[in-house]
């Protein structure tokens, strides 16, 4: 049994420790917001946080998350109040939406570490997340907007 803390809730799962965290989150815990896109850390659709750091859950053995704090898109905010979510709505970022959980989880680490990201910072933070619909220009704008929201205290 592996003990996991996901979005501030305790779980105990009976899986092979080598199983990718992605499938444990999706199938054992039942949180489907984290997506499968490539299975080899190429696309970023599966991005979650372990102790606040982004990881590609499709290549992360569940054993690595044992005893750590896992946060998924469902745990980002209960009510769409996170500045990134507000900015994503304001800029109408998603098209198909499949990659957006991962995009937002990557952007969250960026803004935590750099409250005023430049274009080049956004490139450095976001180039691991593929969007086949091509929402990159809007993701860029939304990250800037979220940074402004945070600076002005407009969102928690």
């Amino acid at each position: 049994m592996i003990a996991l803390n996901v979005n501030r809730r305790q779980y105990s799962v009976d899986v092979d420790p080598a199983t990718p965290l992605l499938w444990v989150i999706r199938e054992n815990i039942g949180l489907a917001g984290t997506k499968y896109g490539c299975g080899m850390a190429q696309c970023g659709a599966c991005t979650v946080h372990i102790d606040g750091e982004a990881v590609r859950s499709c290549v992360t053995p569940v054993s690595r998350a044992a005893g750590k704090i896992v946060t998924t898109i469902e745990g980002l905010s209960a009510d769409l109040s996170h500045p990134l979510q507000q900015a994503w709505i304001a800029e109408d970022v998603p098209q198909c939406g499949y990659c957006q959980s991962g995009q937002i989880m990557s952007a969250a680490v960026l803004l935590r570490e750099n409250s005023k990201p430049t274009d080049s910072d956004i490139d450095d933070a976001m180039s691991g997340n593929i969007c086949r619909c091509g929402t990159y220009p809007r993701i860029r704008r939304a990250i800037r907007r979220a940074a402004q929201l945070m600076a002005s205290g407009g969102a928690k």
């Binding site: 999706r26 489907a32 499968y36 898109i73 469902e74 979510q85 709505i89 998603p94 957006q100 959980s101």
Partner: peptide, 18 residues
């Protein structure tokens, strides 16, 4: 504004895989 955005940024949107 798109009606489907909120569900696509909080993990509740349901794709076939979900």
């Amino acid at each position: 504004h798109r009606l489907d955005t909120p569900s696509k940024i909080n993990g509740t949107a349901q794709f076939g895989l979900d």
